[in-house]
Write a protein that binds this DNA or RNA. Structure first.
Length: 824
RNA sequence: GCCGGGGUGGCGGAAGAGGUAGACGCUGUGGACUUAAAAUCCACUGGGAAGUAAUUCCCAUGAGGGUUCGAGUCCCUCCCCCGGCACCA
């Protein structure tokens, strides 16, 4: 038997695929299929943890290609960003140099895995021909009043010395370096994603059933819509000043005993203007803005606050309500002021206890009484008490009634609050797309003219982080003229968040070389939306939300005819592996448990890696890479090779059609099974069940080994379809086997869609149950009636044993499946 | 705390829409081949009991209840693990 050399065979076929450009896509497809994998940050030496989603995408792309689709399967590099800069600082080389070196390495690795992309469409977000259009997109948002600048307290990482977006903070710490995030007041650019909150939420319905439920749910929570009432509390000293409060529990309004304002709120200045507590308040504000987000947000932390010395008026009772400043109130949510209802909100309860404030009970449980002295706030709905005209109402209905009264008084209105905040896109970093804005002393903020794009990233800057943008260190870049008045002006020194780059890249693949416009509308119409998008779930509330937002903006501008970019989404699990110290962790260079593509494909081969990755478990779940798994994959593939070797002649001779009428009983069975297995593989790929697809191939193979008539025509027929079904998973071996037939690449073969009738079973096994337990089985022709089955069942010795001398209570027959007998 | 997803052999995991629980693989044990080992091939491999045997029975899908002729799958209560959010008023 001929040996199989994985390394040589794989090299050979990768070269052929490359030369034949076998997966190049045209601009105007007939029957399109756009399969996209989340493009990576180029980190150099790739390992198995990096490529799970590429393997998944490749299986789908190959199958769709064979099904006759025009397949678009592109690849690119999300190549701006902090790591390049950090690595470059460490190694004292330019970020670009480091980035492109990594890209070269990573691209080779991906090819070594046998993954087919249309490399003619490769994109690089860090190249001017790409970021020109990122800047163009910025200008579009600016034009549509969706990009704005404001002085704001922003999240700042003291270690990376840069501003962070909400999405880049995890548990109050910088996602990248783990340092606690602090607050800093800076002029920053924002994208007004909150304008789209309602649509981003609503359109999640369109994705139901096509995106993973948990991603949809995460976005829902992230957008965080709540419906409530905005209530005006009049400032006692000056009736023109209204303290606006947002609440979802207007039913508790009679329980309000104080108001609390967040320290960031500008209105405080007005409130304390002539207060004897002024200095105390200012000191408190200063202190709370300094402490880190993580400290401030800690639930365990005791509530703190300070009295302003001033009062507001309760809209219904006219009572004087003391006004406090407290940092447990969030600045960005609702109005930044809350009404304190200590009886029915645990946070207010804690604050009231600390500050010795009155606690009023205004809601009681439906079925019990509630005392004056409570240990914690009663937060459920119930019956309204001590609530004037509303007393006795179900509090859920009370919300509506209270709101109506406030509306009549002109002191309240229905209101909706979102948890989602605007997208902060300014970064004080070098390796990103410059913001195409010019600051002019006369004209203010002026956008760069479209014809002057791209604003090129200057080559020479001092990019050691100092908390200011590195671009400021390049005079030549900074000094420019105002496009409006032609006077001297300065460029904006910041670069854009890299999530801006990746929020539209799936569109650029369609027309990657277009230097006249961001993309050709006609081509986009033909290819988009993306049919299958594959990537990590960690992007649920970042990239995937931003992309949806940008898509909607482009839709509103009339540039694209769809408003959701990704038709179906699949999120794969992580690849884990045991580390040298025995823990099972995510595969990474740092943990010392990486299996690199380069090493592995040299020693074992890409097909083995692919089978191992896909067979180890369901693709949405994490899996552990083990040596045993690798061995198993190898054993399977060598057994496949041996099977074809031993039966080469019959395989070569066989054609892809057969006259089933002439087949013997034994042969018919294999004919039937061939179709069943092939269908299972097909459907399992369609449903992302690659593990069971490979299990079906294994069963099929085992069956072929034990099939006695190895010289029959049907055997060759089955071998042929086995090879086709194998090809998306182990493409190199499949090609090598297929090449014996001298029909060209297996990718040009047709992936069959067989109908149900071919595989109709004429014999079935009927299970006989007695009181729910299996007591016998009968093999019969399909479609026997109940009487016949009963007769056969009752004559089975084992069944007889049970029903003898017993009363039969009931017999239940499910045609061709089960006969269930109930005895006493 | 809230929201999602899960708990099935020694392990990874299978079980359209309630219908033979444990597919497929790994590991392990025994055997064949070999001077020997590796590789390969064959058999067995959830636990327990009876039988020389073929076979048969009991128990078993986190725990406890329920619906049903029949529950891993549906309903209720509880426990544990993973992921996300977290003072969101």
């Amino acid at each position: 038997m001929r040996e199989y050399n994985f390394y040589e065979v794989e090299k050979k076929w990768q070269k052929i695929w490359e030369e034949e450009k076998i997966l190049r896509a045209g601009d105007f497809p007939e029957k399109k299929f756009y399969v996209l994998v989340m493009f990576p940050y180029p980190s150099g030496d790739l390992h198995m943890g990096h490529c799970r989603n590429y393997v998944i995408g490749d299986v789908i792309a190959r199958k769709k290609k064979m099904e006759g689709y025009d397949v678009l399967h592109p690849f690119g590099w999300d190549s701006f960003g902090l790591p390049a800069e950090n690595a470059a600082i460490r190694r004292k080389i330019h970020p670009r140099e480091w980035t492109f070196k990594n890209i070269e390495e990573s691209r080779e690795d991906i090819k070594k895995m046998g993954i087919l992309y249309d490399w003619d469409r490769e994109i690089f977000t860090c190249k001017p021909d790409y970021y020109k259009w990122t800047q163009w997109l910025f200008l579009l948002l600016f034009k549509r009043k969706l990009a704005y600048r404001k002085k704001a307290f922003v999240n700042f990482c003291p270690s990376c010395k840069t501003v962070l977006a909400n999405e880049q903070i995890a548990h109050g710490r910088c996602e990248r370096c783990g340092k606690e995030v602090t607050k800093k007041e800076l002029e920053q650019w924002f994208f007004k994603i909150t304008d789209y909150a309602e649509r981003l939420l609503k359109d999640l319905e369109k994705l139901e059933g096509k995106w993973p439920e948990r991603v949809i749910e995460m976005q829902r929570n992230w957008i965080g819509k709540s419906e409530g009432v905005e209530i005006d509390f009049i400032f006692e000293e000056n009736k023109d000043i209204k303290l606006k409060v947002f609440t979802t529990r207007a039913d508790t309004i009679y329980g309000v005993t104080f108001l609390t304002i967040s320290p960031e709120n500008e209105i405080i200045k007005e409130i304390i203007k002539n207060s004897e507590y002024k200095n105390e308040v200012l000191r408190y504000i200063e202190r709370s803005l300094k402490i880190s987000e993580i400290e401030r947000a800690s639930i365990l932390r005791e509530k703190t606050g300070v009295f302003t010395g001033k009062y507001a008026i309760h809209p219904f009772t006219g009572e004087k309500l003391p006004i406090f400043v407290g940092d447990y109130v969030l600045a960005h949510y609702g109005t930044g002021i809350v009404m304190g209802v200590p009886g029915h909100d645990q946070r207010d309860f804690e604050f009231a206890r600390k500050m010795n404030l009155k606690i009023k009970i205004v809601i009681k449980p439906f079925d019990s009484e509630i005392g004056e002295e409570i240990e914690r706030a009663y937060e459920e709905y119930g019956i309204m008490i001590n609530s004037g005209e509303f007393t006795g109402l179900d509090s859920k209905n009370g919300i509506e009634k209270v709101c109506e009264k406030l509306e009549k008084m002109g002191l309240g209105r229905k209101s909706i609050s979102f948890r989602l905040r605007d997208w902060l896109i300014s970064r004080q970093r070098y390796w990103g797309a410059p913001i195409p804005i010019i600051h002019c002393e006369n004209c203010g903020i002026v956008p760069v003219n479209e014809k002057d794009l791209p604003v090129l990233l200057p080559e020479k800057v001092d990019y050691i982080p100092k908390g200011r943008s590195p671009l400021e260190t390049n005079e030549e870049f900074m000094n420019t003229t105002c496009p409006k008045c032609k006077n001297k002006a300065k460029r904006d020194p910041d670069t854009m968040d890299t999530f801006v780059d990746s929020s539209w890249y799936y569109l650029r693949y369609i027309d990657p070389k277009n230097d006249k416009e961001i993309f050709d509308k006609e081509k986009i119409k033909r290819w988009l939306p993306v049919d299958e998008y594959i990537g990590g779930a960690e992007h649920a509330t970042g990239h995937l939300l931003y992309s949806r937002f940008i898509t909607k903006v482009l839709y509103d501008e009339g540039l694209i005819p769809f408003d959701e970019p990704f038709e179906r989404l699949f999120t794969q699990g992580m690849v884990l592996r045991r580390t040298p110290d025995g823990n099972v962790e995510m595969m990474s260079k740092r943990a010392g448990n990486a299996v690199t593509i380069r090493e592995f494909t040299k020693d074992w081969g890409a097909d083995i890696a692919r089978i191992n990755i896909l067979f180890a478990g369901p693709p949405e779940r994490d899996f552990e890479w083990t040596d045993e798994g690798v061995q198993g994959a190898k054993r399977f593939l060598l057994r496949v090779w041996k099977l074809f070797n031993e039966n080469e002649e019959v395989f070569k001779k066989a054609i892809l059609e057969i006259n089933k009428e002439k087949l013997s009983e034994k042969e018919k069975e294999l004919y039937k099974l061939t179709h069943i297995y092939f269908k299972r593989v097909s459907e399992d790929i369609e449903n992302y069940k690659f593990n069971t697809a490979i299990a079906a191939l294994m069963e099929w193979m085992n069956h072929l080994y034990s099939f006695p008539l190895k010289l029959s025509e049907i055997f060759g027929y089955s071998l042929n379809f086995f090879c086709i079904a194998l090809s998306p998973f182990a493409p190199h071996m499949a090609e090598e086997i297929w090449s014996k037939k001298e029909r060209g690449s297996i990718l040009k073969e047709k992936w069959q869609k067989w109908d149900e009738k071919v595989i109709e079973e004429e014999e079935v096994t009927i299970v006989v149950q007695i009181n729910g337990k299996v007591r016998g089985k009968i093999k019969v022709k399909k479609g026997k009636n109940e009487e016949e089955i009963k007769e056969m069942a009752f004559s089975l010795p084992n069944v007889k044993r049970y029903i003898e001398n017993k009363e039969i209570v009931k017999v239940h027959y499910v045609p061709d499946k089960i006969l269930s007998i109930v005895i006493k």
